[in-house]
Design a protein around this nucleic acid. Structure first.
Length: 932
RNA sequence: GCUCGGAUGGUGGAACUGGUAGACACGCAGGACUUAAAAUCCUGUGCCCUCAACAGGCGUGCGGGUUCGAUUCCCGCUCCGAGUACCA
């Protein structure tokens, strides 16, 4: 029979499902291997060809690892809480759970069609109560924990209470809020329960905090920093404003250093690590307190300004201090004379939008407060300014201005005519621009004069600490993550309020179910949608938290649930966690670099601190698959003089001769840029009677790369390709497209080549009449060579995730075996095994036709290098590095013998034209190069 | 601006440690089969010169360098993509 892909694929998909072929057993004598895909959000649009790219790669890898004797865990699930289902619910009143369920069914059908080897018995859905029970449970653990900087790990809150009881708060080293109280053990004993709770909340790893949040009125929700782009929401592009709100936060900043250091232990793409490093934003420097000169200040209490600097060595070069306009001391520092100017500047700053501020980095602006600080190292008076180049949200919101060493400070000083003091003898041209050099010796710098950078920094840090005016300090850019959304379709936070203070519900009361509500909108009083729930309170008395968890909650631990997905008593059993440990290979898009991948590492470290999991890092190796872009096709409609479209369409090559407007055309009715005119008339009935101006009898379409989207008619649906060519062709073609990690536009041109390959492969096992036909003869040397070449090539390629090159090599192998008329059982059986991770259906079918069973648990053939050994090699002979000819020589020949034969060769002599070779390079098995 | 990628035929791409650039496909051209088309098969296909072959010249974004030899290593640029954005 000819290659009947549809029947074969259905047969084997059914077989795998019925036999649970890919069910992974926890505990096995085989070594474990955990291959994870980033689970999808099941959107209403279903899968397009870009989605499965990473899944196909991970599936090939999983199937390959199974053949190599590993116990492979390869699960799949759904990140099923999220905004689109809720937007849809708002519009239609349909419960998000219902749309989500329907979307998941579509996803499942589409995934099944591609023939993935997922262990579906471990499927998870983040919106299922049996799953989010454990998301809520982890939240409770975070609430019940604090970060002890002495042990450098999270601990149960009871250890903190013990410390308070024993010694008060004086010697506590913890990651906590800034406004914690200082108290004695005796004070603690007299605190009321409420007072204790207020204080403890400042230490908990998830805590309530009045935060300035990114409030998006159009979405009616708060957005995380990474969901805001240039002052607009990433989803929808609605304007975002700053608003103060009580919000749950996650104290991820406690883990900043560990998150940074951990990057050195994992095998991730360098750009992702770099993004995380930037996000964490560690800078090593010092904090310095500048006392405020009392002369004209109205300040009584806070009598200093604290700045953070990475160049404490430049402190003798300070000629001004700049505060962010939002800095809390600005009003108090402003003198009567400067009031008007400062007020004007602040208004002006407020008017500037985020975008303006960014576009406008070159204009220098600022205003003088009229007050001065005293530089602690030399007692000089330094003027205090405000300027919007200083950000309130970073460091202390105040910087020391050193114009000779920092270009922004230099511009500021020039503009406002402030002194520029040279501090290092190696600084050059500081009248022209700042020179940030660390070379040379200090000058004009009091007690550090003559020292080098390193000496000066150490010296100053010590001096500051001894004099109580500062100390060495490490600053991180990363802020705590806001952990609440004013939304319906998310995990309820397992918290209720009593006298305005948050308390956890009891563990046995989990899960706290999402209540039913009448509409998925905020309440009239502006409370989140959960405020609409009736009869929803804790113990019928206390109000529940009305925010739900953000999108990243459920995805921050899901890989552990796969280890033991059905467990009703724990998020996963100790045994399962001890066996599967961590994810060996994680494949997904780089858009999650600073969101999901950072939060997941944070929760993982936290769970490890509490002893629930064993590994410090969850994902050992990460691969980013490239984005598949859309590739749009266009037709060109001739436009008349008034600019109105006519009924004539002109082919791409001739469009310049007319006035035209380009129209998107469905890429699925275009093949190799040639338009199928009949289908086009169906696609756009208004052109049913259109005239087509053709070139060479064809209508050629224009092409452009754009985002893949319905409105651009460039969405290619895998279902259609599977119908026409089968899943095996789709899988191989997606890999054949190019390196996995590279972004590329989808182009269906060329899929025929892969399909033809599979037919040719099928034909290897059949005679002219399509009857299955193989023999049991002894394989020839040439057949074995072709086979072992591919055995080696595929194992090398898969191990380095170079799937595209294997596909080419398969084609070469099949071409060679076809030319050899190979019908040999031994060779073909091994070939089936080697190809099976890529094209599992056709291989299962042939495997069973060969009389075998259980392909998935067969061993990958052993490579035997002896079959590749050659006695001779066609050496390329080059003259002065230019390849001229090939010469067959025995590989046993050493340099001297080889050179002798080469020089004796008539053709070589011809090339030499009588000249004597100066030098002859001979690399065994590679090349002969004659230099004349 | 900074950081990280990338640039190879008409197209997707290959060349893994410096050793025959363009594998494998697509497309295109020609041919076979066919009443015809589709499918299939065969041949050719980097560019230039040449009727053609032989031979030759040029060729991996651009300009230099190291080397017997560079798509690969080094220096300096151009362009494209991604991330980030006054971080003190």
């Amino acid at each position: 029979m000819d290659y009947q892909f549809a029947a074969i694929e259905q047969k084997w998909q059914k077989f795998w499902a019925e036999n649970q072929t890919f069910k992974a057993e926890t505990n096995s004598s085989k070594p474990k291997y955990y291959v994870l895909d980033m689970f999808p959000y099941p959107s209403g649009a279903g899968l397009h060809v870009g989605h499965p790219l990473g899944y196909i790669a991970s599936d090939i890898f999983s199937r390959y690892k199974r053949l190599k004797g590993f116990n492979v865990l390869h699960p799949m699930g759904y990140d099923s809480f999220g905004l689109p289902a809720e937007q849809y619910a708002i519009q239609t009143g349909q419960h998000p759970a219902i749309t989500t369920e329907a979307n998941i069914a579509t996803y499942r059908r589409q995934l099944d069609q591609i023939g993935f080897s997922f262990d579906w018995s471990r499927e998870v859905r983040t919106s299922e109560p049996s799953y989010y029970k454990w998301t809520q449970w982890i939240f409770m653990q975070l609430f019940n924990s604090w970060y002890n900087l002495e042990t450098d790990r999270a601990e149960d809150i009871t250890t903190l209470i013990e410390k308070f009881n024993a010694a008060g708060s004086a010697n506590i080293k913890a990651a906590c809020d800034e406004d914690v109280k200082t108290f004695m053990p005796s004070d603690w004993a007299t605190f009321t329960d409420e007072e204790k709770q207020v204080e403890l909340l400042k230490y908990r790893l998830t805590y309530l905090k009045e935060s300035t949040v990114n409030w998006c009125p159009a979405l009616g929700t708060v957005l995380a920093n990474d969901e805001v782009k240039d002052g607009f929401s990433e989803r929808g592009g609605y304007p975002v404003e700053q608003k103060k709100m009580m919000q749950w936060s996650m104290r991820i900043s406690a883990y900043a250093e560990r998150l940074l250091q951990g990057l050195n232990t994992i095998d991730w793409p360098e750009p992702v690590k770099e993004m995380q490093r930037n996000w964490i934003g560690k800078s090593v420097g010092a904090s310095v307190r500048f006392a405020i000169s009392t002369e004209n200040s109205q300040l009584k209490t806070a009598n200093f300004i604290e700045v953070f600097t990475t160049r404490v060595d430049t402190i003798f070069g300070v000629s001004f201090i700049v505060l962010a306009p939002e800095h809390e001391l600005v009003q108090a520092l402003t003198t009567e004379a400067q009031k008007e100017e400062i007020a004007k500047y602040i208004t002006q700053t407020k008017k500037k939008s985020e975008l303006d501020r960014m576009a406008d980095t070159k204009t220098v602006s600022g205003a003088f407060t009229g007050s001065y600080v005293i530089n602690p190292v030399n007692q000089e008076l330094v003027p205090i300014w405000i300027a919007d180049y200083v950000l309130a949200g970073y460091g202390t919101g105040a910087v020391m201005g050193v114009p000779s060493g920092d270009q922004r400070d230099w511009l500021f000083a020039k503009h406002f005519n402030l002194p520029i003091i040279q501090i290092l003898d190696a600084q050059k041209d500081i009248e022209v621009e700042a020179d940030a050099t660390k070379d040379g010796k200090y000058i004009n710098s009091g007690f550090i004069n003559g020292l080098t950078y390193k000496e000066a920094t150490e010296n100053l840090n010590n001096w500051l600490e001894e004099n109580g005016v500062g100390k060495a300090k490490i600053n991180y850019r990363m802020r705590d993550a806001i952990f609440g959304r004013q939304r319906y379709w998310g995990e309820p936070i397992p918290v209720y309020f009593k006298d305005g203070l948050p308390y956890l519900i009891k563990e046995e009361e989990l899960p706290l179910l999402l209540p039913e509500i009448d509409k998925y909108l905020p309440t009239e009083s502006g409370e989140p949608p959960l405020g609409r729930a009736t009869d929803w309170s804790y113990e019928n008395r206390y109000e529940y938290e009305l925010s739900t968890m953000p999108g990243w909650a459920g995805s921050s631990w899901y890989w552990y649930r796969y280890m033991d997905a059905q467990n009703g008593n724990k998020f996963a059993s100790k045994d399962a966690i001890a066996y599967w440990k961590d994810v060996d290979l994680y494949i997904g898009g780089s858009e999650h670099a600073t969101g999901h991948l950072l939060y997941s590492r944070f929760w993982n470290k936290f769970l490890k601190d509490l002893g629930y999991v064993n590994e410090e890092e969850p994902f050992k190796k990460l691969i980013n698959q490239g984005m598949i872009q859309g590739r749009s096709n266009f037709v060109y409609r001739v436009v008349d003089e008034e600019g109105k479209g006519t009924n004539t369409l002109v082919s791409y090559g001739l469009r310049k001769e007319y006035k035209t407007s380009a129209l998107h055309v469905d890429v699925n009715i275009v093949e190799n840029e040639i338009l199928n005119i009949n289908k086009f008339k169906e696609f756009r009935p208004e052109f049913a009677n259109a005239e087509f101006i053709l070139e060479n009898g064809k209508y050629i379409c224009g092409v452009e790369v754009e985002k893949m989207s319905k409105s651009k008619f460039n969405v290619v649906n895998p279902d259609v390709l599977i119908e026409n060519y089968g899943a095996d062709t789709l899988r191989m073609y997606e890999m054949f497209l190019g390196p996995l990690e590279q972004s590329k536009p989808w182009n269906t041109n060329g899929i025929e080549g892969v399909f033809k390959f599979l037919r040719k492969f099928w034909r290897l096992f059949h005679n002219e009449e399509w009857v299955f036909h193989i023999n049991d003869s002894v394989p020839t040397k040439a057949e074995l060579k072709a086979l072992h070449k591919i055995i080696k090539k595929v194992q090398d390629d898969v191990e380095r995730f170079s799937f595209n090159t294997s596909v080419s090599s398969f084609m070469i192998a099949v071409n060679e075996l076809t030319d050899l008329k190979c019908k040999n059982r031994q060779v073909l059986e091994d070939l089936v095994v080697v190809l099976s991770p890529y094209a599992p259906h056709i291989c299962e079918e042939l495997w069973s036709l060969l009389g075998n069973t259980d392909l998935s648990n067969t061993a990958y053939p052993t490579f035997n290098p002896a079959y590749l050994e050659e006695a001779e090699f066609a050496y390329p002979v080059s003259i002065n590095g230019k390849m001229k000819m090939n010469l067959n020589l025995s590989l046993s020949l050493e340099q001297d013998q080889a050179v002798e034969i080469v020089l004796a060769n008539e053709q070589v002599q011809g090339y030499l034209e009588g000249k004597t070779p100066k030098k002859i390079i001979f690399v065994k098995g590679k090349i002969v190069n004659i230099v004349v």
